[in-house]
């Protein structure tokens, strides 16, 4: 067989190449993938990017040593650390984003612009099934849930229940990628889902404000920057221990002026615009 002859030559080649492997969240992927394009062109770096399994895929593949950099749109949880005790997870923030609750046009125009945390929990647990119960049109609520493992989902249940493990058992139609979510919400009447706020374009899908202590807080830049909006979340790249070598080159670039421009270009908040430090238990 030809492969038998190819094998040794290829194996010897593999030692020479220094490939930087990245995997994780599709949300963080956008600026990182574009940064990688720049580094590939300018520094001739060999960078491979994938988005298998979202944030949790990034955490587990870094934990197993299959990649050098993870991309996550949520924090590394204690459970994650226990699952991979050998990995010294180091989170490096590259920007800020928020999880928005997005609705379809008919809901938005039907008058639903704000919801409270309690209402969201009621919808999630199936106690509220119709938009008229939250001041909207008489239409059933179609909730598209982000699939498990997605950072967006974890941030959402963390806000509602404090811990993903405490989230109640529910079954909804599931969506995976951000565009899939946007597309399905936009084309379905009475639809609601969780989506990175930068994808809520205000034309096909609309981001609801959250009512906190009587104040309506919209997921807009100012509120995300000051972290008043409760579902804001940091966007991280993740390394095992202090970044070094190729990983460090990438991360330095992401934190540089040009890298931060890419973060901004994709609708996220660059670090310089962040006003308040994160408060997290």
């Amino acid at each position: 067989m030809k492969l038998a002859i190819l094998f040794p030559t290829l194996l010897s080649l593999s030692a020479a190449a220094e490939t930087l492997k990245i995997n994780g969240s599709t949300t963080v992927n956008l600026p990182v993938a574009e940064a990688a394009e720049v580094l590939r062109a300018e520094k001739k770096m060999d960078i491979q990017i994938d988005t298998q399994g979202g944030s949790s895929g990034g955490i587990s593949m870094l934990g197993e040593g299959l990649v050098q950099v993870g991309m996550i749109s949520k924090h590394v949880s204690q459970t994650d650390r226990e699952k991979f005790p050998k990995c010294q997870y180091k989170e490096i923030q590259i920007g800020e984003d928020a999880v928005a609750l997005i609705v379809s046009k008919d809901v938005w125009e039907g008058g639903v612009k704000t919801v409270t945390k309690e209402q969201v929990a009621d919808i999630y647990e199936g106690r509220i099934k119709n938009w008229k119960e939250v001041g909207g049109p008489d239409r059933r609520i179609v909730f598209f849930n982000k699939e498990p493992g997605r950072g967006t989902w974890e941030v959402f249940v963390h806000w509602l229940y404090g811990d993903p493990k405490k989230a109640p058992q529910v079954s909804f139609p599931e969506v995976g990628g951000n565009e899939e979510t946007r597309n399905k919400v936009a084309s379905t009447k009475g639809a609601l889902s969780q989506l990175s706020s930068s994808w809520a374009d205000g034309k096909t899908v609309f981001a609801l404000s959250l009512k906190v202590d009587g104040k309506e807080i919209a997921p807009v830049t100012a509120n995300i920057a000051s972290r008043i909006y409760p579902l804001s979340r940091p966007l991280f790249v993740l390394t095992n221990g202090e970044p070094s070598g190729e990983s460090k080159v990438l991360i330095d670039f992401l934190l540089s002026e040009r890298g931060q421009q890419l973060v901004k270009k994709h609708g996220y908040l660059p670090l310089a615009e962040l006003k308040a430090p994160e408060t997290r238990p």
């Binding site: 399994g53 979202g54 498990p148 995976g176």
Partner: peptide, 10 residues
Amino acid sequence: GSSETNIAYG
């Protein structure tokens, strides 16, 4: 084919 295959691994 869902993300659970990745989550379940391990």
